[in-house]
Design a protein around this nucleic acid. Structure first.
Lengths: 121, 121
DNA sequence: CCGGATCCTATAGGATACTG
DNA sequence: CAGTATCCTATAGGATCCGG
């Protein structure tokens, strides 16, 4: 199965969809990651500009240090965010979007636009 | 704040984003709902055609009856799925996408396409 | 056939304290 | 400054049984 959405729209899914296929689908992984509690907000702040860790921590009202770290790490592992260390004293760390991260904003914005237009009606 | 993604891309977010605003944003709600464990798969099966409850239960390998009910109820509350009851004996129930649900497939497919093209690289 | 009610477990996420 | 480690709680989700 290439990806579940395309498969469904074009060829149709098999009679019983194996749970392993669904779990392995990159689209499944992507929407789950986007659905994590703080992912969207962090992504939007980084879309604006690169941020220092504590700077993000101050702007994201209510997030715990632990979850900010975890959210950034996940985004980094998915290649959407890049972490840059400045060997100053004390060391500074900057988080910014990768090219991939900025590209994601295009279809994500389209989805967001639809949601807003739709929820207005 | 109209919606967080547009706000970020155009005007920029306020210095500190109030957690209440983030939680109230319809886009936040939408991506979280899409990120729920079974939402995507159920949506794709219903995109193919309308299904009976047990028919879905058989096709979605590994889902519990409880979660299928909850997933469908949530989709129905969000106006993406419609539930039709046939007063036969025993009663039959059919679930299908609403017009809104079919419209959602457009930006969702675009996102899915990007994810797949991206994860191939 | 289509669920609701109940109970249980696993995981997401928060609070706090500590370090290079 | 930018985390890691630990502990704790809340919620998502699964299993099972029951009813219209």
């Amino acid at each position: 199965m290439p990806h579940i959405v395309a498969a469904a729209v074009s060829a149709g899914l098999p009679g019983k969809v194996p749970v392993a296929d669904y779990e392995a689908c990159p689209v499944t992984h992507a929407v789950r990651m986007l659905g994590d509690k703080w992912t969207l907000l962090v992504l939007m702040l980084l879309a604006e500009r690169a941020h220092r860790f504590n700077e993000l921590h101050r702007r994201v009202d209510g997030i715990s240090q632990r979850m900010l770290t975890r959210t950034l790490r996940t985004l980094e592992d998915d290649g959407l965010v890049v972490r840059t260390v400045f060997p100053t004293i004390p060391p500074g760390v900057e988080y910014g979007l990768t090219a991939r991260g900025r590209e994601l904003l295009v279809p994500l914005s389209a989805l967001a636009d639809w949601v807003v237009r739709d929820s207005a009606a």
